[in-house]
Amino acid sequence: MRYLRLYLHFLRFSFSRAMEFRLDFFFKIIMDCMFYVVNLGFYKILFLTTPMLAGWSEDQTMVFVSSYLLVDALHMTVFASNMWMIPFSINRGDLDSYLTRPVSTLFFVSLRDFAANSFINLLMAIGIFAYTLMNLKAPYTTGQLLFYVGCILNGWLLHYVLQMIFIIPVFWTQSSRGFSDFFFSMGVAIERPDLVYRGVLRWLLTLVLPFALIVSFPARLFFGPETPHLFLHLVFVTLAAWGFMLWFWKKGLRAYSSASS
């Protein structure tokens, strides 16, 4: 309850701050719209060359695309601006003030800033998601849809965990970015159906750095028919990634030496 109340305060501050910088607010909305157009355009053009992609038809692929746009919008709204600042907080020693507060430091640094502009984009992403679902030719039940949305929400949290795993090394590397650029480069792995990956790359993206589990596994579970082992894989890897991230964060905090860490 205490954390929920704190988060509502974060929301209020974030919205009032966003309204102070209106032009920036507007620019960011357009920026995210462009991201959506580019991604939808990419797959639209790709389907001019092929009728199927990794066993998915165009309407199925568009549901997959709109799902990762949804995950991105959720991430941008809730976590992204906070995560951008974490390496700087560690590097400059600003983490001190968070460590002394009577709440979880991870909670505070991950959720403090709510991106009001991205919230508008989140509504758009939900609209695109609903539109692609309406155009999906294969039938599905409400239960299947709810299960899919649940898996997407799981993918969103997994996305956060993976980004944290790439940020935490900043405790040791002493740079202001950590391995964030590497994470953003890997982001493209989320945007491709996992069945295109084979061999070592498949092992890497479904087990070690499970980017393929964020949206592609949920989409495969939704489109079916898939065996339960796919769902178990998703659950097991998500839990393992969470556990590893929490352990890694604690290790990082122990290595933290305040200013100029």
């Binding site: 391995f179 650029d181 590497f182 994470f183 480069s185």
Partner: peptide, 9 residues
């Protein structure tokens, strides 16, 4: 950072 990012990208 440089090598990890370079290889990643």
């Amino acid at each position: 950072d440089f090598w990890v990012n370079f290889l990643g990208q």
